[in-house]
Design a protein around this nucleic acid. Structure first.
Length: 519
DNA sequence: AATGCCGGGCA
DNA sequence: TGCCCGGCATT
């Protein structure tokens, strides 16, 4: 049966070589559009039993006898109209042995080939009818190409329009200033490739290297490296609805708009629920001893470190990237502390506007060890303004993400007081120059160690992002620090159940942290 | 209540 | 070191 199907497929739509109809003997290529049986179509010029209607390269249809053509291996979609030749065609194999087997088309075979055809093919004993359907199938599939192409163009246009609209709305929105950036970013590749460390360079601030990380807090699984699969996954869902399921669109044309939609969808629709919360501000904190300077741009913080602490005056070009060691990225949820934090950035608080805040996400708090940095002062607790003790807890409010180029930079838990009910703006102040410690007022917060590496986009590939998720909760800081965050994924117990305990990983069997389904 | 897993005990 | 389990935290 398979062979039969192969034969059928090999003839129709196949590229063949034929002697030139002009008579000069020069070989021409064409695509077989139909096969006729000579005894049924006496008008056919073919001397033998089969006549092949071939669509030639110039678009004309010619009929050839078997001897006049040689089948090629390649299937090529027909591009021209074939109606005239369809009616009387019947299906045949390439060789004589196959072509006259009128009964060779078993209903199953036909059904299998045309599962979507509403008509009952199997009822028709006549092979010609069957082959007619086959022909139609070919024609349909081939004729689809044309409309598709047209449609995709329209779609692309629509996408462009949509993208433009989105852009317009976004760019005019006071809350969202970065999307325009994303557009340009999208051209260079999937914006998700930024990972958690992807630098966004606002068009208005490209030189200063303004940086917005749009990564999700929980993107820890792929800290800094691009994740094509992921982006592809998120790509499809949007692509399908927007393009209408039409395949084979010119990628070059379509991608930008797709990125656009994808991006906007990510911004507003949140395809991957837990991964796309980004109502965060990204700040960069100088980790230098006795310097808690917080800037809003990587360039700024780098410059600061380079000039102030490293004593270098040269441009970032001559930087060896050492600055990266001395600052950390702080991501913080802006939902409730945006205002309080705005006072944080002495430099360009205006530059950072709260990203579109989808209601607060799950709050993994990524915590950066600071151990490596020179004489880190932040171990000392910053006297909390409100007189509350560091561990005092009030209403939970926000979560903060602290990103660092190097996870080992920060060992001491950097705690950020979430200003919730009281002292919203005062609780988080780097003013205490000696340390940038923050005290917890809110429940579990997760710091992610992520590569800040603004330089990454500029060719600095050396920074590796390392993500360490540490959960610390104020109430039981001691135990919480040591205890691992409960994994979200399925564990052996869940997967295999108690009855299949022998299938568990050893860790699960020993009631230890699961090693098989790690999060 | 179920689940995940740390800490600790035992062989 | 491998194994097991009490007990706690989290869901």
């Amino acid at each position: 049966m398979h062979t039969r199907r192969l034969v059928k497929r090999s003839i129709l739509g196949s590229r063949v070589y034929a002697t030139s109809p002009t008579g000069d003997g020069a070989p021409v290529t064409g695509v077989v559009q139909a096969v006729k049986q000579e005894n049924r179509d006496a008008s056919a010029a073919g001397p033998r039993r089969s006549v092949y209607t071939v669509l030639l390269q110039d678009g004309s249809l010619k009929e050839f006898s078997e001897e006049e053509i040689a089948a090629g291996s390649n299937h090529t979609a027909a591009k021209g109209p074939l109606k005239s030749s369809l009616k009387q065609s019947s299906s045949n194999g390439v060789s004589d042995g196959h072509k006259l087997e009128s009964g060779c088309w078993s209903p199953e075979a036909v059904e299998e080939q045309r599962p979507v055809d509403g008509k009952r093919v199997s009822r028709d004993p006549d092979a010609r009818s069957v082959s007619l359907l086959e022909q139609k199938r070919k024609v349909v599939s081939s004729s689809i190409d044309v409309p598709h192409a047209r449609r995709s163009e329209e779609e692309v246009d629509m996408d462009k329009v949509t993208a433009a609209m989105v852009l317009t709305s976004l760019s005019t929105s006071p809350l969202v200033r970065s999307p325009p950036v994303k557009v340009s970013e999208g051209l260079s590749g999937s914006w998700k490739d930024n990972g958690s460390a992807g630098p966004f360079t606002p068009s208005s601030n490209s030189s200063s290297g303004g940086y917005w990380s749009w990564s999700a807090p929980s993107d820890q699984s792929n800290p800094s490296t691009p994740s094509p699969p992921l982006s592809a996954d998120s790509f499809k869902p949007f692509r399908v609805p927007s393009v209408g399921g039409v395949g084979s669109n010119p990628p070059g044309v379509e991608d930008p708009s797709l990125d656009e939609q994808d991006g906007s969808s990510l911004l507003f629709d949140e395809p991957i629920p837990r991964k796309r919360k980004n109502s965060m501000k990204v700040m960069f904190k100088c980790l230098w001893k006795n310097c808690g300077k917080v800037l809003s741009t990587t360039a700024g913080i780098q410059r600061h470190i380079r000039t102030i602490h490293l004593g270098r005056n040269c441009d970032s070009d001559c930087s060896d990237g050492e600055e990266d060691f001395y600052y950390t990225e702080i991501k913080l949820n802006t939902d409730s502390v945006a205002d309080g934090l705005s006072s944080l950035s002495p430099v360009s608080s205006s530059v950072i506007s709260p990203p579109p805040p989808p209601p607060s996400p799950l709050a993994p708090l990524n915590h950066q060890p600071d151990s490596h940095r020179p004489a880190h002062p932040s171990d000392s607790k910053e006297p909390h303004p409100g007189g509350t003790t560091p561990l005092s807890r009030s209403a939970p409010s926000a979560l903060y993400l602290i990103h660092t180029d190097h996870a080992y930079q920060a060992t001491a838990p950097v705690s950020i007081p979430s200003s919730s009910s009281n002292s919203s703006s005062t609780s988080f102040t780097p003013t205490n120059s000696s340390s940038f410690s923050i005290s917890w007022q809110s429940p579990p917060v997760t710091f992610t160690g992520n590569t800040v590496s603004p330089t990454k986009s500029q060719g600095f590939g050396e920074q590796r992002s390392q993500t360490i998720a540490v959960l610390s909760s104020p109430p039981r800081a001691t135990t919480a620090l040591s205890r691992k965050v409960r994994g979200e994924g399925k564990k052996c117990r869940k997967v295999y159940g108690m009855e299949n305990r022998d299938m568990w990983c050893t860790a699960c069997r020993w009631k230890k942290a699961c090693q098989r389904f790690t999060d």
